[in-house]
Every structure is written in C-alpha cells, then in structure tokens.
Nucleic acid binder design. Structure first.
Lengths: 152, 152
DNA sequence: CCGAGTCAGTTCTTTTGTTGAACTGACTCC
DNA sequence: GGAGTCAGTTCAACAAAAGAACTGACTCGG
C-alpha cells in the first residue's frame, strides 16, 4: 500500500503538503535558499542518507523547483540551483521560521539565529497579510468559497 | 533505525518541519481550521487510517496545538479544538495555499476553491511581509545572523 | 430487551519508506 | 600510482502507513 498522494487534490494546501510533507524536503529547500548547491554539501550539512538526498533532489528538479546544471566536464559535476518557483517557496519557509521562533522554544529561551534585513540590520518578523489591502489574513475574517465566476 | 528528528534543531524551520513533515498532519490542522472537531469527521473527511489519525491527534494535543475536551459523558466523547498556538499555524497554511494556487496548477487552470474576506467578499491573496515595516520578506534582502545581543 | 447504529479508538498484516553503511566510478592532484 | 573528491547506487535492518477488521461503551427505536 502506497502512501496516499495529495498532489492532485483540489485543495492547494494538500498539494503543497504532498511535496513538503516528505521528510527532509523542507530542509533541502532551506539549505538551497542559504546558497548550498552541491550534493556533497547538502549531504554534510543535513546528515541525510545519500539515497534519500538523491530521491529528494530528483523530485525537486522534476517538478521545477531546482535546475541541475553542469559546472564542469570530466568528470561531469552538477550543481542544484533554485528556479523562480523554488525561490517562491521562501515565503513558506519564512512563515515557518516565525512560527517556530514564537512557539517552539521554552519560555525565556530563543533560537540562536535570527533573520535580519541586510541594509537596515533590523530584525525581520514575517507576518502574513493580504496583498491588495495589507489586512492581516485572520482565519475568523476569511472563508473558503468555490470559484464559480472569473473563469478567465 | 528511527526517522531522524528535527524537534531540537537550532533552526526554527527544522523544528516546524518535525511536526509538519509528518504525513497527514498539515491536513488535520487544515480541517481543524475549517471547524472540524470530531474524530469520525476528521476520518471521513480525510480518508486517513484510524490508527494514523489517533497518533496525529495525540501528538497535536500533547504539543499544545489542540485541546481534547469532553462534550458528553456516557459514553465519554471528546472533541478536538484548536488552541491559540494551533490557530497560529493558519499563517503557515495560508501561505502554502497561496503558493499552491500560484504554482501547482497547469497553465490556465485554477483550483476550484479560493479564499475570500467574509465582509468585503474580495479574494484574499496572502503575502509575507515584515511586521514592523511592511517590507516584503525577500530572500535577497535578508540574512541569517546569530543572536548575540538582546538576551532579554 | 434485542438488534442496529454511532463514536472512538486498537489490533493486525502487507507494503512502502528511511537509515546508515558500504560500494562504484570517473576523474584530479601530488 | 595512491590518496582524495564528488556524485551517486545498492543493500539489509528497521520504522511508518494503508486498509480492514475488531472492541467497547453506550443510545435509540420497535
């Protein structure tokens, strides 16, 4: 019995979960965001099994999150670089970061690392708002509806 | 060999992944956000195995995302309701929603469901910005640094 | 008061995934 | 020509998921 797939669900959250719910995948993407590109570097950084890393990178390439580009011949060596689609995942990781630092440390404790803007050196605190209005995306103020109009 | 745990990692993303990376967990949380509270309803809605659902709900309760509250005696029946911590996960789900609808449908296709504000009926498009400044949380403009000051 | 139904699990077997370690192969560099 | 680097593949042991059946404590209708 194969693990249930969610990649053709009607719910966007479920489709993302199909990728993101694979063990190690969010951390591979995270390290890619930090600038890691080589197989060995991912492997050392994460401590993941080489077999799993191969499978995860292959899927990320197949689904357009990363490109596998040769950077030398003899022997052929590749690096894994994020595509625009891959880089768009940063939003998800940033919000996970915020949730984690707010809720997953003991009271009075904080993670040893934080996000900061390069230019102003101010700490970054990611929040989610509506693009057009800037309103917070509060669960109580939102509903899910079926998209019947604007077929476009 | 037990699956590698990330719940004591120094990186906030890794800690969130430890929970979120478990198969079905994001979908259980999603359905809880939509108002589902009973074991049977989760099970029917998701089609998940009962054993897995038991394990996922137990973990969510243990770690403070949900409360298991009795709503009747004889026989004792419980409902699973989100805590504030659980509800705070909505931000993560909302951004996953946005990513999914933008990137995980074929060109010209769109999901059948969308998010809308209850009051204005306008469609919601979640984006991630810095809480204090409203600046977009752009990967290129950000760096990770170790938190040496502001011990607080 | 008997049988059907409901809710919330637990137990079971089969299949799939993950881990860690060893192995392969194509090189380069000294 | 031996050591080192990079990017994998293969393998055995173990963990996790799927699906289905089973348990148990009730309620309710006839």
């Amino acid at each position: 019995m194969r693990r249930t797939r969610f990649d053709d669900a009607e719910c966007p959250i479920a489709r993302v979960t199909d990728l993101f719910g694979e063990w190690w995948t969010p951390l591979v993407l995270r390290d890619a965001m930090y600038g890691i590109t080589k197989f060995e570097d991912f492997q050392h950084e994460l401590g993941v099994s080489r077999a799993i890393l191969t499978a995860r990178l292959s899927r990320l390439v197949d689904e357009g999150y990363m490109d596998k580009v040769p950077y030398q011949d003899r022997p052929v060596r590749h690096e894994y670089v994020l595509t625009d689609k891959g880089r768009a995942m940063w939003d998800v990781l940033a919000v996970m970061w915020r949730f984690g630092e707010e809720h997953l440390w003991e009271d009075g404790e904080q993670p040893l690392v934080e996000l900061a803007f390069r230019d102003t050196k101010e700490r970054v605190r990611p929040v989610v708002v509506d693009e057009a209005t800037g309103r917070p995306v509060d669960l109580a103020a939102i509903r899910i509806r079926s998209r019947t109009r604007t077929r476009r």
